[in-house]
Structures are given as structure tokens and as C-alpha cells.
């Protein structure tokens, strides 16, 4: 895959928020492949001062929020975004954490960066499709969606999740994916981005999405 990252962008650095859940290595590898520097940290001061944040994660919503709060990472993210000159990409559980609430392990509150809620898939929701939703699936999005510049609607992305963000009344660019029913598979709200799929695990398609995110910052 050819990447068109300018030298100016190459001078940027991504901060991957590492709060101890999931595989961070593959994100570093993806950014390295794209020629973008990346580092990881759980320190609120570093998070507050970074212009490009990535919030990854797999696992339990409740445990993730606890880790994030214990380390005061939530305040650092929210205050950083208030400065308006920074961007954040939430991936998989990271995207879900940006929502209002989740019913994983009882109802718990998210970072509330967007107003959508996260709910568990039930067998009836998915119309007897198996849970978790795991594997490659495609997305439906508006052609103006900057996250998917150069991506076709037939291109597939890797998902692995039992909870999903409801579309509700999302205002902004988004994509939905169908698994028995529609769910929110990505969103763009000003400087806040989220993908339920793993761009770092979606071959060339995913690398392109990461490149689009960086190009936007």
C-alpha cells in the first residue's frame, strides 16, 4: 500500500493511552508502518499535552473505566479535548468508553464524549447470528466521511465484540454495520473519532483509515 503522509505529518507523534488493557503493540506497529511516531503512556500530564491521542482497549467496560479513573486519565482526556487543537481516536472498547453508558457488568458511565449508549448484543438483536460478532464485515457510510477517504463500501474491517454502540440519534458523520440489525461501527464528531472495528487488524483497509485519521489531525 502506498501511503501519502507528508513530511509535516511525519513530524507528529501519536500518544497511545495505555491503561493496561489489550494489545498495544499492533497499534505501534501500524503507525510505524505508516511512518508516524508513536509512544504510549498512562500519565495524565502527557495525555493532556498530546495533540493526537489514541484510546485503544479490549475487555470489560467497567474495569477499563475504573483503570482510567484511578489514573485520572478521564479528566486529562476531557480537558485536553476542550483545547480544540487536539484529536482522539477510540478503537473497539476505546470507542465504547467514549459513550454515555454501558450495560456491561451492570450499568456504568463512560467518558460521555458522545451521547450514545453501549448495549450487549442479544441473540434476538442479531437475528440468531452468533455472538460475539467476530470477523470481517463491511461498513455503510456517506461518501463525504473523511475517515473513509479512498475506502470502498465493499471493503471489510475486523470486528470482535459482544457489545455495540447504538446508533440512536447520532449527529455527525458515522458508519453503520449490519449484524442482524444496524449498529454504530464508527463516528466522527468534530475532533473525536471512534471505530468499533480494529483498524490495526484490518489489513490495508485499516491502515488507510489510520492514515485518514492522522491526515485530519
Amino acid at each position: 500500500m502506498e501511503t501519502k503522509i507528508s513530511n509535516i505529518l511525519k513530524s507528529r507523534k501519536v500518544l497511545i493511552i495505555n491503561y493496561g488493557m489489550g494489545n498495544i503493540k499492533s497499534l505501534h506497529a501500524a503507525f510505524r508502518y505508516l511512518g508516524i511516531r508513536s509512544e504510549e503512556s498512562d500519565r495524565p500530564d502527557k495525555i493532556y499535552n498530546s495533540n493526537i491521542l489514541v484510546l485503544p482497549g479490549v475487555g470489560s467496560f467497567k474495569k477499563a473505566m475504573k483503570n482510567i479513573k484511578d489514573k485520572n486519565i478521564d479528566e486529562a482526556i476531557v480537558n485536553n479535548l476542550k483545547k480544540k487543537n487536539s484529536s482522539i481516536l477510540g478503537i473497539c472498547l476505546g470507542m465504547q468508553l467514549m459513550g454515555k453508558t454501558s450495560n456491561e457488568d451492570g450499568l456504568s458511565k463512560g467518558l460521555n464524549l458522545i451521547e450514545n449508549n453501549v448495549r450487549k448484543f442479544s441473540f434476538s438483536d442479531t437475528k440468531n447470528n452468533k455472538i460475539p460478532h467476530v470477523g470481517f464485515n463491511n461498513l455503510k457510510f456517506n461518501s463525504s466521511n473523511k475517515l473513509f477517504k479512498g475506502i470502498k463500501k465493499s471493503h471489510d474491517f475486523y470486528f470482535n465484540h459482544s457489545y455495540r454502540m447504538l446508533i440512536e440519534k447520532f449527529k455527525g458523520d458515522y458508519s453503520f454495520t449490519v449484524y442482524g440489525q444496524k449498529f454504530l461501527s464508527s463516528f466522527v464528531k468534530d475532533n473525536i473519532f471512534g471505530t468499533q472495528f480494529h483498524p490495526e487488524k484490518s489489513q490495508s483497509n485499516g491502515l488507510k483509515v489510520l492514515e485518514n485519521f492522522i491526515n485530519h489531525t
Binding site: 488493557m21 479490549v58 475487555g59 470489560s60 474495569k63 472498547l93 460475539p132 470482535n160 465484540h161 459482544s162
Partner: peptide, 8 residues
């Protein structure tokens, strides 16, 4: 599963 989730 408590750390990484069932899907892991």
C-alpha cells in the same frame, strides 16, 4: 475474561 473480555 475479567481483564480481556470473553471475546478474547
Amino acid at each position: 475474561a475479567r481483564v480481556y473480555g470473553e471475546q478474547c
